[in-house]
Every structure is written in structure tokens, then in C-alpha cells.
């Protein structure tokens, strides 16, 4: 029978606040919770440097993780519903790879330039893949086939990146590899308003698609019969997904598994596929998981950081394996 949706909201909301606070407290220097709250409220902390660390470094990083996680998770959810495929996700469809390619071209062939150049390149790369997929979506009605086209686009982009790397100098390759590990610290206070603008706009657009997303659970024929303009909605979903993924990839590098695994976690927590509850829960869970992953990248004691993608994979891969192994007992598959 239907579970109460209030408990997941309260649990995730509380978890999100605690994780956000923990992200502001922990790092190379541990700052007590009391001082963090005091800094956020405009007060003066025990050490003058703490204020700078929290406001200039950790706060933008935590906000980036929160919005980035939410954006990737919501993208994954929309793609899984659209493609009726539990393994669909922004990285699977080649959108992330397109953004990677754009960044690789700029990093390897042009002197890295301003961050705006990198962001622009990522947008162009993601947009090219997206346009190709949208063009195919007008010809190919079958969503599984479209998913395979997306995977092929990803392979193509990866191949071109390999060729570019082969011809590049060692330090450029090193620079690109570091970017490819994913990093929420890449968004400074100066860049944060741009990141926030794109991410929030994408998330609002996603919320506007809740009604047709529910109808698409019945398949495209039923959806069309109910009154959904299927082709238009398909393009809208791909476009919103593209904006959200390109934004995160451009600012933070390609981040794996959050888009793929979090929608499953949200369904398991909620027990329902109704997007009216599932989309907000996915958004909250994505934000919470990204904050958790960011926290776990901190190596205790020495202030060094592990690659973000190593942590997201350690958390995400077991979830996907669990879901696949237990799919007969999970109601949204049956």
C-alpha cells in the first residue's frame, strides 16, 4: 500500500541541512559548527581566517554540490522515464561526453584561457550531441534505439578525445585528466551566480514537466491518447536535461553515477513512481548524496582531497547492482 511521503521529505530535508553544515565545517581546517553558523549570520568567528574559508571557499563549494547533485539526479530521472530504461542517465546518452569533448578541445589546443571559454566549450559540445539526438528523435520513434544512438555518440566523443590526447603535450593531458576527475571546488564565489542561474532555471523547467512525465510512464501511445504532445515533450525533456548536464559538466567536470543511481535511491525511499513526489525527492536526494560525496573526498588529517568520481562510483555502483539484482521485488519494475 501507499507509503506516507512526508517522512522522506522531512528525513531528506534534515539530512540535507546537516550535510550542508558538515561541508562548511570540515576540510583542511576543522571549524566548529557554532562558528560556522555565526559566520553565516554575519558574526565574527574565533579566528579571522575562518570567515574567509567558509564564505569564499566552502560555501560556494557546498552550494555547487547541492545544486549540481540535484541537477544531475533530476536529469537522470527524466531520462529514465523518457527512455523507459532504468540504465538511462546523462552520462549514458553522450551529453556529458559531448561537454567533455568541448572542454578537451579548449584545454588541449588553446591555452586554457578564461573559465568562460571552458564553460562555453562544454555548452557547445553538449549542445551538438543534444541536437544530433533531437534530430534523430524526429526520425527514430523507438526510445531504445534512440538510447543506443546516444551511447554511440558518447563513444564517438570519447574516441575523438583519445585522439586529441594522443597528440597533446603531457602537461595539457595532465590538466585535462584532473578536470575529468570531477570537482565541486571548481566553482568560485565569482562563478557561483552563473552556475546557480543555469541550474535553478533547469530545475524549474524540470518541475514544469512533472505532468507529462507521469503520463509517459504508460508509454508513448497512452500518453498521446491522454493528450500529451509526445514529440514536443520529448524535445523539451532532452533540452532541459542537456542544459542541466552541460551546466554541471562545464563547471565541475564530468561527474558519474549521481544521475544514474540517485533516481533509483529516491524510488526505493519513496516507494512510488509518481513524479509529483518522486521529482522533489530525487532533487533532495541528489543534493544530499552530492554533499555526502564531497565530504567523503576529504582525506582526514592531511587536507588532501580524493577524486570526486572515485567516491560517486563507490556509492553509485552498488546501488545499481542492488536494483538490478532485486528488480523482481521492486514494484516500479513490475
Amino acid at each position: 500500500m501507499k507509503r506516507n511521503a512526508t517522512i522522506p521529505y522531512i528525513g531528506l530535508g534534515a539530512g540535507l541541512i546537516l550535510l550542508f553544515l558538515a561541508n562548511l565545517m570540515y576540510g583542511s581546517v576543522r571549524i566548529p559548527a557554532f562558528d560556522v553558523v555565526s559566520i553565516l549570520l554575519g558574526g565574527s568567528p574565533g579566528h579571522q581566517a575562518w570567515s574567509h574559508i567558509v564564505l569564499e571557499s566552502r560555501l560556494p563549494q557546498a552550494v555547487t554540490a547541492l545544486l549540481g547533485g540535484a541537477a544531475l539526479a533530476v536529469s537522470g530521472l527524466m531520462l529514465q522515464t523518457l527512455f523507459k530504461n532504468p540504465l538511462a542517465g546523462p552520462s549514458i546518452l553522450g551529453i556529458s561526453d559531448g561537454a567533455n569533448l568541448g572542454v578537451a578541445i579548449v584545454m588541449i589546443y588553446f591555452s586554457a584561457g578564461s573559465y568562460l571559454t571552458t564553460i562555453f566549450a562544454a555548452f557547445i559540445g553538449a549542445a551538438v550531441v543534444l541536437l544530433v539526438i533531437i534530430a534523430f528523435s524526429r526520425k527514430v520513434r523507438n526510445n531504445v534505439m534512440l538510447l543506443i544512438i546516444g551511447i554511440m555518440m558518447g563513444y564517438l566523443a570519447s574516441s575523438i578525445i583519445s585522439i586529441l590526447n594522443f597528440r597533446a603535450t603531457a602537461d595539457k593531458v595532465h590538466q585535462y585528466v584532473l578536470w575529468g576527475m570531477g570537482d565541486f571546488t571548481a566553482v568560485s564565489l565569482e562563478k557561483l551566480p552563473y552556475f546557480t542561474l543555469f541550474a535553478v532555471a533547469g530545475l524549474i523547467a524540470a518541475a514544469a514537466l512533472i505532468k507529462p512525465l507521469n503520463a509517459l510512464l504508460l508509454g508513448e501511445s497512452y500518453a498521446a491518447n491522454l493528450g500529451v504532445k509526445v514529440r514536443r515533450v520529448r524535445v523539451a525533456i532532452l533540452l532541459v536535461t542537456g542544459i542541466l548536464t552541460a551546466t554541471v559538466t562545464a563547471f565541475c567536470g564530468p561527474i558519474s553515477f549521481i544521475g544514474l543511481a540517485v533516481p533509483h535511491m529516491a524510488r526505493l525511499i519513496l516507494g512510488s513512481s509518481n513524479h509529483k513526489q518522486l521529482l522533489p525527492v530525487t532533487l533532495l536526494a541528489g543534493a544530499a548524496i552530492a554533499l555526502l560525496c564531497n565530504l567523503l573526498t576529504i582525506v582526514p588529517g592531511n587536507g588532501q582531497m580524493l577524486p570526486l568520481n572515485a567516491i560517486t562510483s563507490i556509492i553509485g555502483a552498488p546501488v545499481i547492482i542492488y536494483v538490478i539484482m532485486n528488480r523482481k521485488n521492486i514494484q516500479y519494475f513490475n
Binding site: 501507499k2 522515464t81 523507459k84 507521469n214 510512464l217 504508460l218 508509454g219 501511445s221 497512452y222 524510488r267 516507494g271 512510488s272 513512481s273 509518481n274 514494484q331 516500479y332 519494475f333 513490475n334
Partner: peptide
């Protein structure tokens, strides 16, 4: 045709 509605009430 099969639907993905198992998770809907």
C-alpha cells in the same frame, strides 16, 4: 502494451 506503471497507485 507493457507500461512502467508498477510504481503508481
Amino acid at each position: 502494451e507493457k507500461t512502467n506503471a508498477g510504481g503508481l497507485t
